[in-house]
Amino acid sequence: MASRLSTDFLKDVLSSNLLFGGKVVFGGDFRQILPVVQKGTRQDIVNASLCSCYIWSECSVLRLTKNLRLTMGGPSSDVEETKLFAKWLLDIGEDNVGGSNDGVAMIDIPDDLLIKDSLDPISKLFDFVYPDILLNCENQHYFQDRAILAPTNEIVDEINDSLLKFFPADEVEYLSSDTICSSEYINGTVDAALYSPELLNGLRMSGLPNHKLMLKVGVPVMLLRYSTINYIFGYSCS
């Protein structure tokens, strides 16, 4: 949040009586990025947001009306379909779908977005996102336009394991190194109960690969490079 000292300072620098001298721009997705209030309730978080700040009444809200990312490239039919999907998502965020609600509402999902097979929904999802995957697995552009999003790491692992079974090659198991670093030793000893291999191998968190990695010949692998921190993992073939 801005302080009154900064607003007065900019007024003096810009020789203007407008808020911030009329030269400050706030940007961001306020639907997804909320302020962090330690042990705060929903009301506390709303009260700490920019829309509840004392300067909000003096701000002008500017809205982008044309999404250049969606309108550039690709057939016109795909662009129009993407526009409709983007508008549907935006209507959900602005409570324009499902009627008025107090945080809970029923939303009608379009039929073309639904997987109606309750017996084997994962296979139907693969058929929709990755049609003819075995014929296109060597096409580098095939996977660039396709992705499956999942809410948790457990579901990601489940989807990857199921998709791996589509490939006919033999599975190869790679295990990460679970040796304790020598810097963790105190006076030449270490408490094995605190750093047991079972504990290290069971860690599952965002940004870190699992202890066991299953691969097949022809299966694409995504490599991520972090700009601020370099993660180095060692795997040995079992």
Rank of each mutant, 00 (worst) to 15 (best):
M1G: 07
S6D: 02
D8K: 14
F9D: 02
D12F: 09
L14S: 04
F20T: 15
G22D: 09
K23G: 01
K23N: 06
K23Q: 10
V25N: 07
G28K: 08
P35S: 05
V36E: 05
K39H: 12
V46L: 14
V46K: 12
N47M: 11
L50D: 00
L50I: 15
L50M: 15
C51K: 15
S52V: 05
C53N: 09
S57P: 02
L62A: 09
L62V: 15
L62R: 07
R63E: 10
T65C: 06
P75A: 14
S77F: 06
V79G: 04
E80C: 12
E80L: 14
E81D: 12
L84G: 05
L90N: 05
I92E: 06
G93L: 07
E94S: 14
G98C: 07
S100D: 13
N101I: 02
N101K: 03
D102T: 10
G103H: 01
G103E: 05
G103P: 07
V104C: 11
M106S: 15
D108K: 10
D111H: 08
L113K: 03
I115C: 13
D120Y: 12
P121T: 11
S123R: 04
K124D: 13
L125Y: 13
L125G: 12
Y130L: 09
Y130E: 00
Y130F: 15
D132H: 12
L135E: 13
N136F: 02
E138N: 13
Q140M: 13
F143I: 00
R146E: 06
I148M: 00
I148H: 01
A150F: 01
P151Q: 10
P151Y: 09
P151V: 04
T152M: 08
N153M: 08
I159A: 10
D161L: 09
S162F: 04
F166D: 01
F167K: 03
D170L: 08
D170F: 04
V172A: 10
V172F: 08
E173D: 07
Y174N: 03
L175F: 15
S177Y: 12
D178N: 12
T179E: 15
I180S: 05
S182W: 12
S183I: 11
S183G: 04
E184M: 14
T189R: 09
V190P: 01
V190H: 10
D191L: 05
D191K: 05
P197V: 01
P197R: 05
L199C: 02
N201C: 07
N201S: 09
G202E: 02
G202V: 01
M205Y: 08
M205I: 14
L208D: 15
L208F: 11
N210W: 00
K212G: 00
L213C: 09
M214F: 05
K216Y: 02
V217W: 00
M222E: 00
R225V: 06
R225T: 03
Y226A: 02
T228L: 11
I229T: 14
I229M: 14
N230D: 09
I232Y: 02
I232F: 11
F233T: 13
G234P: 00
Y235H: 11
C237H: 05
